[in-house]
Amino acid sequence: LAREKLTEDDWEEVEETLLAADVGVAATTQIVNRLRTQSLVLATASGLQLRDLVVRELTAVLGPDLDRTLHTSRHDGRPAVVLVVGVNGAGKTTTVGKIARVLVGDGKSVLLGAADTFRAAAADQLETWGERVGVLTVRGREGGDPASVAFEAVRTGTEAEVDAVLVDTAGRLHTKSGLMDELGKVKRVVEKHGPVDEVLLVLDATTGQNGVVQARVFTEAVEVTGVVLTKLDGTAKGGIVVAVQRELGIPVKLIGLGEGPDDLAPFEPEAFAEALVGNA
């Protein structure tokens, strides 16, 4: 019979690593309990082995086999439509610019829709991104109806036969029901042209436990298909996506690694888990 060779200090260290990365109490407790069982079965003896086990378990929680591809190809004679949503300042507009850059690099034609008609200079910011990566931006009147702008953008993209239309939306806190209704309307109005292919929720890696609530409410409103985890180039580990994945099953698809057009990368569960656990 295998006996526990790891000390309580080892376990405390694992727990603190996860908590310090914003994985949260519930997910951390579950992971640590499962690891304890596994370590007994595998007769894990050293802290180093334990670290590998943590990485493996975290990777497993993140669903390594999930489909994380972005649906951005024309289909049924229509452009793919991507809607980008999230709370204020998370990195939506920047992410739209970066995704456009990747698509243009792949030889695709892209159109941007500036459905943030609220924040000061938001449409200009998106248009600047468009110019940077060489794509056009459809914009509306300041303070105008965001759903109409989104509708117009998709209509224009359909006529121009582009591959993808990327719609940027205004930042909104999930607690503001009026703004969440507005977002739902943006999606419904766009769907008059056909189904939306991707709804990307942008989550800032520095976000704490509120991230799960954000993901839950946004997905109730507009059926999020994937998360983009931004600002991972900082010191934050972004562990909240572990809880998001575990509770809601929404996969992270992309990560943001800076403010430049090329600072976007696919999400790789194992590399993410390695970085979260660190070298300690």
Binding site: A20, T206, T207, G211
Partner: peptide, 15 residues
């Protein structure tokens, strides 16, 4: 500082 920030608050504030 954003009220939604998590555990990174200490590292960032110190920096």
């Amino acid at each position: 500082v954003d009220a939604m920030i998590g555990q990174d608050a200490v590292t960032t504030a110190t920096a």
